[in-house]
Write a protein that binds this DNA or RNA. Structure first.
Lengths: 238, 238
DNA sequence: GAGTGGTCTAGACCACGGT
DNA sequence: CCGTGGTCTAGACCACTCC
């Protein structure tokens, strides 16, 4: 057990998914949960808050914690922010995936690049361009910029494997947070050449800015992917 | 003042945006904020949590609350979940917008529709199909299903105005939460006819499932929009 | 070792829903 | 009116960062 509130959250989540509360569609009251788990009110409330953030329940003052109806996308898709590099997608599926490194070199950020990726002018960066194939089909192309001052010592071997494994094992900083932007744009010449677009002439774009725990941006990645294959979901309250 | 923690959050957010902490890029410690605002630790921590959720700061145990570097998309775009009906987009811009109601009638959910929109078979619903024009250009088309048992008494006049105003003013339930799914797909014949796609042959799709405070789905809307005009952003931690 | 944020407790009062 | 969740307080102990 790491955290009490995490434990209570896991327990309740399982019980909801198993349909334990399907008769009332309401969770037990906070008082009942306090007694059951032998804990304080704040701790129970934190667990319930996590369920809220998951989109599983909705708390109503004076009534109780209502369980939300299930919808189809809960199972088929994955959350925004788990859409990193395509790991989340192929994790539990039986597909052959392959990554081709198309470009890898250093450069200095100039004016126009600075506007695109929010890195300061003059910053020394690695550029990594990779193509992702699934079952031989070119599904997406990633262009990543890494700050050399933070992500030290990249080389061809690391690039071909997992850059994030390298960060975790060899570097002394933590990945803290990321911001994503999603767009649909007309395909460029390079997209037609590289991606299995078929008759489509547009691409989905997912831009990802990643922070370390000093609050510094260290990666900016743009993913261009083909239509009809991917979905992103999100949940919002109030 | 509604909430103390909300107040502290607003204050700190403004100070961050004004660059008050640009020298250290760290927020004052919790103890300092407790003294400054004359409040308890929990309340200060709730305010900081909101800043975390906004993607403005990141808390590090043992070091402090680090202010995240700014990136371009912070200003240009709007958050996922505010992408409702296009209100958020045109709110602060000087554009001529127009809505055309293309379809409005009742129907009963059958097997195939149930799979698409997660409503139970046999449920009686309103179908509303609308086209959104901005400066005379057909930017998006919305297809909405509303449960008649919850969203009562829709008519042509309400549809032409704002359905959500009708809900707020005349109906006795609250909008609680929503789930969204974002995709890119090949355009259909109807898209070519209705939308200002130009040479593009794909559309962005945003599906939205909306809940009331009883945990019941009452709306399922599919928005099909043209490329190159819209962006959605999200923020994730850990 | 000093100082920071993370977890947890035990209690109080308030606002809202349903009866 | 009672029971619910929402806000807030005051205090304790722990885990981590940095010097």
């Amino acid at each position: 057990m790491v955290n009490k509130f995490r434990d209570i959250y896991d327990t309740l989540k399982n019980e909801i998914n198993e349909g334990l509360y399907n008769d009332t569609m309401v969770l037990p009251t906070e008082m009942a949960l306090i007694e059951r788990f032998g804990t304080s009110r704040n701790t129970v409330r934190r667990a319930i808050q996590l369920l809220n953030e998951d989109g599983l329940v909705y708390s109503v003052k004076g009534r109780g914690v209502v369980i939300l109806e299930r919808i189809e996308i809960d199972k088929k898709s994955f959350k925004v922010g788990n859409f990193q590099g395509l790991k989340a997608l192929s994790a539990d599926t039986e597909v052959e995936k392959k990554t081709i490194v198309q470009e890898f070199h250093e450069l200095t950020v100039d004016d126009s690049l600075a506007k695109k990726i929010s890195f300061p002018v003059g910053e020394r960066v690695y550029l990594v361009k990779r193509l992702r194939l699934i079952d031989g089909k070119a599904m997406m192309s990633d262009t990543s910029y890494f700050k050399k001052s933070i992500v030290k010592g990249l080389n061809e071997k690391i690039i071909a494997g997992s850059i994030y494994d390298h960060i975790k094992q060899n570097l002394d900083f933590k990945i803290a947070a990321s911001k994503s932007i999603m767009k649909v744009e007309s395909a460029k010449d390079s997209d037609f050449k590289e991606l299995a677009l078929g008759k489509n002439n547009c691409v989905g774009i997912l831009e990802n800015a990643v922070y370390n725990d000093m609050g510094k941006l260290f990666e900016y990645t743009t993913i261009r992917y083909i239509p009809n294959e991917y979905a992103l979901i999100s949940f919002d309250q109030n």
